[in-house]
């Protein structure tokens, strides 16, 4: 009884596993997102080689260029880790610097994607051209939309940080944003391997 009352005292922080509920919930959401991208990727894979007319993947993909943008996105994940570290330590300058790097790298990746899309359209590969065009643009487009949401999220955190609203107690909100960012990054690695690298 005394024990129960003690628990009840601070009950909206009580959890049976000791994990924060936002974290558990967000992991669950990421699980759901895996199925989402998994289905989009499967669609791409089953339509591989089914395009009736060009341009075909080999005609348009520029592997070195995409490797650079992939590398930039990977590095942004590293910056994300350092940003979280900064917030947890209460080092505002470090946190803001690395959050800034995440934002810039994320934007660079989006810039590459914008260039790639316009270039492909110029080459004749449109959304409507073939099943390759349809599956490629929808898959990478949805990934790009996720990156965009991530960049907006990071900008919001950055502004909060500027206004001194990211104390170490709020590290969890950065951690969850980081989970999202790493997830989006990993999805891109899978896309890069399955779509670009495997002929």
């Amino acid at each position: 009884m005394a024990e129960a009352a003690a628990v009840a005292h601070d009950d909206h922080h009580y959890t049976s596993t000791g994990l924060n509920s936002w974290k558990v919930g967000f992991w669950t959401f990421i699980g759901s997102e895996c199925l989402f991208f998994g289905t989009l990727l499967s669609t791409y894979m089953v339509y591989k080689g089914a395009a009736l007319q060009g341009p075909y993947p080999g005609d348009v993909f520029d592997i070195p260029l995409t490797t650079i943008s992939t590398f930039v996105l990977l590095m942004s994940s590293l910056a994300m880790v350092l940003a979280l570290d900064g917030v947890q330590r209460g080092n505002k300058r470090l946190a803001l610097f690395w959050l800034g790097v995440v934002i810039v790298f994320g934007s660079i990746f989006l810039g590459f994607q914008y260039y790639e899309f316009t270039h492909f359209v110029h080459e004749g590969l449109t959304l409507q051209q073939s099943v390759f065009g349809s599956t490629f643009f929808v898959l990478t487009g949805f990934h790009g939309a996720h990156v965009t949401v991530g960049v907006i999220w990071m900008i919001s955190l950055f502004v909060m940080g500027l206004r001194d609203k990211l104390p170490p107690e709020k590290a969890l909100s950065v951690e969850i944003a980081g989970l999202y960012w790493h997830f989006v990054d990993i999805v891109w690695i899978v896309i890069f391997v399955l779509v670009y690298l495997i002929p």
Binding site: S130, V131, G133, S134, T135
Partner: peptide, 10 residues
Amino acid sequence: TNFFVASAGG
């Protein structure tokens, strides 16, 4: 798009 359009390879 052509996801389910048989005549376009879907």
